[in-house]
Amino acid sequence: MGEVLVLVDAADGSVKKVTTELLTLAQSLGEPSAVWIGPGYTDAAGATLGEFGAQKVYVADSADYINHPVAPKAEVLSKLVADQSPIAVLIGSSPEGKEVAARLAVRTNSGIITDAIGIAPDLTATQSIFGGATVVQSKVSAGTPIITVRPNSTAPVANAGAATRVDVSVELSAAAKSATITNRAAAVKGGRPELTEAAIVVSGGRGVGAAEGFGVIEDLADSLGAAVGASRAATDAGYYPHAFQVGQTGKTVSPQLYIANGISGAIQHRAGMQTSKLIVAVNKDAEAPMFELADFGVVGDLFTVVPQLTEEIKKRKG
């Protein structure tokens, strides 16, 4: 069976859910191998990768690979592509993931598909484009298929793999080292799930009216164990930090449930949440375009509807 390389996405040493999803997808295509790039690899991380089917874990743990943006990861992967001839490379569809994929595609003369939501055993990728209006089947026709996959596209399925560690070291080109990261300010991590990974996202828009108003949004999110999101109007107004913006120029989310509160449903917002499985909208304007997308909508004031919903959820969850 052909080898499928999966680039590991990890923060603070722990493997992200999207990586377990990618390994699960890789199981259906061939033999999954994980690729860890950067310092901080631990046996615990290896165990997680093995749990989801990684037969091998390539570890390139020099700090050099993360002191320069994007290019080093592409160079490590391209060395592995040359040495191992995998049948495909899967990378999470984050902004950086797509950039790594882009450089890798050029280096290996390979076609690239971004934002796949599924991959068939023959490596045909499914994409949802034009804000979810059209579903496309596409295929890479040159080189090694390089496919970036959206978080939450597959449910992670455990399937023990050997996770044999294979150390890798690559001499970086001068070009890869030509930009240097001189400082990192980690995003403040709250107690909530990460936006792109969360099974449920509760968002607030301009209708929330003020930063204090986000209290009702956070309360609802916490009652559901959800992440909090925001529209650009809300982040621009300073109601909520920019890092939580959902939409074309914010995060793309695809949760099981998306609850939009006081968000009109502009096309740029929809671009980031339209593939959510279930959509609920609360808005006092019955004409708000978000209702066209909603599986369930309530026309009303979010400051009465949302707290009532939070109470009701707490009651039902006991």
Partner: peptide, 16 residues
């Protein structure tokens, strides 16, 4: 097509 209801005091309960 989804269901859209007017809040008449029990909108939150309806969503739950």
């Amino acid at each position: 097509a989804g269901v859209v209801v007017q809040d008449e005091g029990a909108g939150g309960v309806a969503i739950a």
